[in-house]
Design a protein around this nucleic acid. Structure first.
Lengths: 346, 346
DNA sequence: TTGAAAGCGCTAACAT
DNA sequence: ATGTTAGCGCTTTCAA
């Protein structure tokens, strides 16, 4: 009810203690102390005083005094990309269910920047860092990143990766290879024989896994495709659009199926097809990966591989809180979802 | 290059000073102090020592000592919703361009929870809080929120709202009324006469503004629509789907145009139309609002009103940093984008 | 149980 | 220009 018209610094524990007529220590103990050992009389007075003064504990000061924080740092490539926002959503929900505060940094898909962000986040002395996003196949970068993260863990921090297995940290990995493989088998069985992969960036491990899984799946279905090409581009909508364009410009037989390594790219590819006067799903089948929620209503419905994105986020926080002794690896399953963009050919 | 195999606490300024053979103050000054006034000789030694020890300043300690933080708190309703993720993207980009750290909380569209989040964020003593999302028409809630925010400002914090004007804080407001009005005029001119508004939640001010603007626009175009109904539902994809369903179940003449107060709802409505065997854009025209990037490739292309979402985020941070004396209001313009989902009828 | 006091890592007067 | 030192808000021994 009170209106503060004057600029007054926040109430401190000290203020509360004075107002309640107890010592600093007692105030601290009733307001935070784990094992309750404060006289009910005093306890009540402190609580009342805190309420009256609108006391809000200073987390920073607590952190300094305790030597540890309740902060979790998140690093994503692009919060605007639904893949990341869904994972981030899971992380944020889980963190504040745990009473932790989430801090977020965006790397803009720049691995250099990602390394710098880790260092910047470390300044916050978070209890943990969750790094979301595909690793790249670059030994030097990986080593710099790993070294930053190891330093952080040596200081008592905890690192969880949501990406590929392989680095010596707790990791949540989606079943990219298996998912893409299962998708390929389904589509091969549906009669598609001239498939092309819109493979994303060459160095990105996620791209590679999905591409590889798809090609292997085709082979496993008894249709090894010597002609199965992989066209590289950015991992974005524009990347899909542009790669599809290059594909259409090529001579030779038109593919009957285009597998984009993520949904956003698939949508870009569909747009490009339409710009060329072709109807996705009829003239060329299209499939994606991720099953992004926002894209579930595109028409024709996009065949894709569903990933439990949000669950990946919450699981990451679980690992963070659990702090297992040895780096653990959690694999999250992928599930093929066939929709109208890849009608059966027979 | 060094591998930390042993758990060793992070290097402190003290460690660096000792290693460099200088005083704490000198180390502090070279590593942080604004006006440089340190001997190059010493400076170099400190820098070397810091590098060697892998020193990362402790922001929390700095904050306590300085009495202010470099943290900005963000509160959004749902990071998974592209509307919010785009604004959040703008905020995060801008904050770390300013060397600030962004902390994020998600309210899940629950105004109660939003108030609690403000209080929780305050514990971090951020230099500012950015609250993203529509206000609701509920005096009691608004008053509790306002009171929390006023307390925060009384303590020296800075609040920026990205939503409706009206509260006594710096505000970024999108031109909802004008945008919806312009859209209505365009569509009235295109020949649509039986429009219905999928209006979202009744209490949400954003819904109200867009609905009101649309209705006024129709009237301004010389087609006051006594029959212009507003169907309420959730502000989500499912809300749009469900509201569209109710509309189809009604007796009477089918509308020739459905205006959903946001793109996500519009997509839901389109899905519902298709489930009913109707083709959006041909049997019933559909328009949305926001021009969400991820949805720009839906087919038929969704007519909508473009909002500079990301710019809203960056502008919010500008206001935060500038800290104008009086609460300022920045209006961001909306722009009608006509696409294939609302073909001209004549 | 309670309180006094010594830190936590860092900054910012204040001397030198 | 450099160093000493008293805090910042809080926690946590250690006595009482």
């Amino acid at each position: 009810m009170a209106r503060e018209d004057t600029r007054r610094p926040p109430a401190t524990l000290h203020d509360v203690a004075r107002e309640a007529g107890v010592s600093l220590a007692t105030a601290s103990r009733t307001l935070n102390g784990s094992t309750r050992k404060v006289n009910d009389e005093y306890r009540a007075r402190v609580l009342t005083a805190a309420e009256a003064l609108g006391y809000v504990p200073n987390l920073q000061a607590q952190a300094v005094a305790r030597g540890r924080t309740t902060t979790v740092g998140i690093i994503v490539a692009d919060i605007t990309d639904p893949y990341f926002s869904q994972i981030a959503g899971g992380i944020i929900t889980a963190t504040d269910a745990e009473g932790l505060v989430a801090t977020i940094g965006v790397s803009g898909r720049d691995p250099e920047r990602e390394v710098r962000l880790v260092s910047a986040l470390r300044a916050q002395r978070p209890s943990g860092i969750v790094l979301v996003g595909s690793r790249v196949a670059d030994a030097e970068l990986t080593s710099r990143l790993t070294s930053q993260l190891r330093d952080f863990e040596a200081e008592g921090g905890h690192v969880v990766l949501v990406s590929q297995a392989g680095l010596p940290f707790d990791t949540i990995a989606f079943d990219n290879i298996e998912g893409a493989g299962a998708l390929a088998r389904r589509l091969a069985d549906a009669g598609y024989r001239r498939a092309v992969v819109l493979a994303g960036p060459e160095e990105l491990l996620t791209s590679r896994e999905r591409t590889q899984g798809f090609i292997e799946g085709y082979a496993a279905a008894g249709h090894p495709s010597p002609s199965l090409e992989a066209v590289h581009s950015a991992f974005t909508r524009d990347g899909g659009y542009e790669a599809m364009g290059r594909l259409l410009d090529q001579d030779g037989e038109r593919p009957d199926l285009v597998f984009a390594v993520n949904d956003v790219m698939a949508v870009g590819a569909m747009a490009r097809l339409r710009d060329a006067g072709l109807e996705p799903g009829r003239d060329v089948a299209v499939a994606g990966f991720d099953d992004i929620e926002t894209l579930r209503d595109v028409s024709p419905g996009l065949t894709t591989v569903r990933l439990p994105l949000e669950q990946g986020g919450t699981t990451a926080v679980e690992l963070l809180v659990r702090r297992a002794a040895a780096p653990s690896l959690v694999r999250l399953p992928a599930e093929v979802v066939v929709r109208a963009s890849t009608p059966a050919l027979r």
